[in-house]
Design a protein around this nucleic acid. Structure first.
Lengths: 325, 325
DNA sequence: AGCGTGCCCAACCGATGGTTGTGGCTCGCC
DNA sequence: GGCGAGCCACAACCATCGGTTGGGCACGCT
C-alpha cells in the first residue's frame, strides 16, 4: 500500500473530486484515478461511486476513511519526527522503563499534542552524550556529569528532579515486614545492584552511599535481566536491592516483592537534564516546567556530592527554571 | 512511502536482523535491505547501524519506530475495516452529528479496542436500508420502519433508546427565559424544522406530535445548513426549532441560543436498531448492551404511535435485550 | 586460516506509476 | 433536443521501482 495513494484517497473523499485532489497534490487527474484504482484493487472493494459531478464514498470507502486519515497523520508525524532541522523534540533517557521515561510519559499524557520522541543513546560515556547534545542529535539528555568542570561552554546541566530510593526485598527477607526504613537499618544487610557500569554515575552514587552510611552494596557483576533479578530476590532470605520509587514499570507485582520506602534521610538519586545553552528546542521549555511541578521531596534528604554543588550553569536561581506553570 | 517498507522496518528493528524480518515477511533479505534503503533515502536519514550481528537502530530510527508502528497498525485496522467476510462492525447512522453517532462515540470511547466503523447510507428510503442490512453491507442501522409489517422475516428492529426533544430559541423569543416547558406551552408558537424529507419517519413523527398537542410545526422546505438555521434562530423573535437533547455536536454555543427541556410529558423521539435476525455481527451484542445502560427517561413520556407497538421481533422481553452488564 | 553469518552491491526483469491524448458519460443551458 | 462543460476512465508510452539471483565484503568464532 502506497501512502501517497492513501493521501490521495483522503483528499479526494474530502473534496469530492479527483480533479481537485490531483491539483492539490500536484499530479494529473489520471494519476489520482490510477492510485484510487490501485487501492481498490489491493483492498478488493469499491471505494467511490463515480458520478457526473465527481466521486462519492461507498460504504466501504466511508469505513476506510478514518483509518486512512490515521495512516496519513501517522506518516506526517513520522516525517516530522526525523526531519533534519525542525524535527520533533527528542530526549535521551537511560532506559525506556526508567523513572525519566515515566516522567516523560506523564508529561506526554498531559500534552498529547506534543511531538515528543524518547530515545536511548547506546553509550555509557557521558562525554559522548554531551557531544550528541552539542551536535543536535538529541535535544536533551537525562544524564549526569559528575564533574561539572568537564562540561563544555555551550552545554548546560540543570537539575531535573530527584528519584527517592526504595528497598526491594522478597517475603523471606528479615526486613520484609517493615513499613519504612532508615539508611542505618540497612547496615550489614547485603544489597545487590547488578548491571552498574564501572565508573558510571550510578557506580559513583552507590560508592558514596556505601561510604556515608557504612553499607554493603554490591554493584559489580553483569545484569541478566529484570526477571532474573526478581526471581533471585523473591527466593532469597538475605539479598535486597534498591530501586527508584518512580520506576513503576520495572517491577511487576507478580513476585510477591515488597517495596519499602527509605526515610530519615530519604536517599535521593538526582536526575539532571543536559541541554544546549543556546537555542534549545522550543518544546523543551514546557518539559522543564513540567519537571518543576513534580512533587518535591521531604526535608531530610541525602544526596551525592555532585548534587549539592551548583550545576545550573547560568545565573538565574533554580526556582526560575523550575517555575510552575 | 510504501507501507510494506514501514512494516519491514518495524520487524527488522524488533528482530534486530534483516534476515529474520525477511523470512517472516516472505521475501529475500535483499528485498528488505532495499526497502530499508529506500526508506532511508526518502527520509534522508540513516535508520540502522549495520553490525556484524545484524542491525541496530540509530537515534533517528528510534524516533521513527513508534510512528512506524502507528502506521502499520493503522494499515492493519484499515484492512480489517473493509475485508469482505470478517470485517469490522459497521453501523449506519443518519448523520455523523446525530444523537446516534454521539451514543456510538460514547461507546467507542469506553471500548476503544473495538473495530467500529460508523457510516451513513446516502438513501432516505427505509426499504433500501433494510436491503443493505439483509445483504450484509452494514451490520446494523439506527433507523426506524414505522410499519413493522414491511419488515422481512430475516430482519428485526429493536428499540435502542429515546432522544428527548428540547426547544432551541434565540434570545429575543418570548419563551427564551423559561427553564422548562410543557408541550401545551408551545401551542400557537411557530416551530420550524427544516430539512425533513416528506413521508419520512421524522415527518410522521412531527405530524403526530402536531396533531396530539395542537402545535404549529412547519416541517416543510429545504435545509440550507445548520449555520443558516442558527443565524435565523438567533435573530428571530418568533421562530423556534426542536432538537434532540443528545445532539450535542450540532449546536455550537456561539449564537447565544437557549436549549429548553420539554417535560410533562417529555417528547421522546424513539431510535431503533435494524439488524439481521440471524448471525448478527459478534461485536453488535456489546453495543446493544451499552444502549441498555443509557440513562432512562422520566415517567411521563409521549412517544409516536409506532414506538408503543411491539417491534422487538422476538419473544424475549425488552428488559432482556437492554440488560445492564 | 578457514568458515559461517549477515549485510550490501550488481545485473536483470516484470510491474508499477507517472505522463499525454482520447473517449464516454451526465448534467445544465439555450 | 442538441451542445458544451466538466469529470472520470482507458490506452499508449516510458522511466522508475521493487523484486529476484548471484557475488562480494566485513566481522566473529573456532
Amino acid at each position: 500500500m502506497d501512502t501517497e495513494a492513501v493521501r490521495s484517497f483522503v483528499r479526494a473523499a474530502e473534496l469530492g473530486q479527483l480533479q481537485h485532489a490531483a491539483d492539490e497534490l500536484g499530479v494529473t487527474q489520471q494519476a489520482v484515478s490510477k492510485r484510487i484504482a490501485a487501492l481498490e484493487r489491493e483492498l478488493d472493494v469499491r471505494l467511490f461511486t463515480r458520478t457526473a459531478r465527481g466521486v462519492e464514498l461507498t460504504l466501504d470507502g466511508q469505513a476506510l476513511l478514518p483509518h486512512a486519515r490515521d495512516i496519513v497523520t501517522g506518516v506526517d508525524r513520522a516525517i516530522t519526527a526525523i526531519r533534519p532541522g525542525s524535527r520533533a523534540l527528542r530526549i535521551d533517557v537511560l532506559g525506556l522503563r526508567s523513572a525519566q521515561a515515566v516522567v516523560l510519559h506523564d508529561y506526554w499524557r498531559s500534552h498529547p499534542e506534543t511531538d515528543l520522541d524518547v530515545v536511548t543513546l547506546r553509550v555509557n560515556d557521558p562525554r559522548l552524550v554531551v557531544t550528541a547534545v552539542q551536535a543536535g542529535d538529541i535535544d536533551a539528555s537525562f544524564r549526569s556529569v559528575t564533574d561539572p568542570a568537564t562540561l563544555p561552554r555551550d552545554v548546560q546541566m540543570i537539575h531535573a528532579f530527584d528519584s527517592p530510593l526504595e528497598l526491594l526485598v522478597g517475603p523471606r527477607h528479615p526486613l520484609a515486614s517493615a513499613r519504612t526504613l532508615t539508611p542505618s537499618q540497612l547496615r550489614r544487610h547485603r544489597i545487590w545492584v547488578p548491571g552498574i557500569a564501572p565508573r558510571s554515575e550510578w557506580a559513583e552514587f552507590y560508592d558514596q552511599l556505601a561510604t556515608d552510611f557504612d553499607l554493603r552494596i554490591d554493584a559489580a557483576g553483569p545484569h541478566f535481566g529484570d526477571e532474573v533479578l526478581l526471581d533471585i530476590l523473591a527466593d532469597s532470605a538475605d539479598v535486597a536491592t534498591l530501586v527508584g520509587s518512580r520506576d513503576r514499570y520495572i517491577w511487576p507485582t507478580n513476585h510477591d516483592l515488597r517495596r519499602i520506602p527509605i526515610v530519615n534521610p530519604t536517599l535521593a538519586y538526582p536526575l539532571f537534564l543536559i541541554l544546549p545553552r543556546a537555542n534549545p528546542h522550543p518544546g523543551l521549555r514546557a518539559v522543564i516546567n513540567h519537571l518543576g511541578s513534580l512533587a518535591p521531596l521531604p526535608e531530610t534528604v541525602w544526596r551525592p556530592s555532585w548534587a549539592t554543588t551548583a550545576h545550573d550553569g547560568d545565573d538565574r536561581p533554580r526556582s526560575d527554571l523550575h517555575r510552575r506553570r
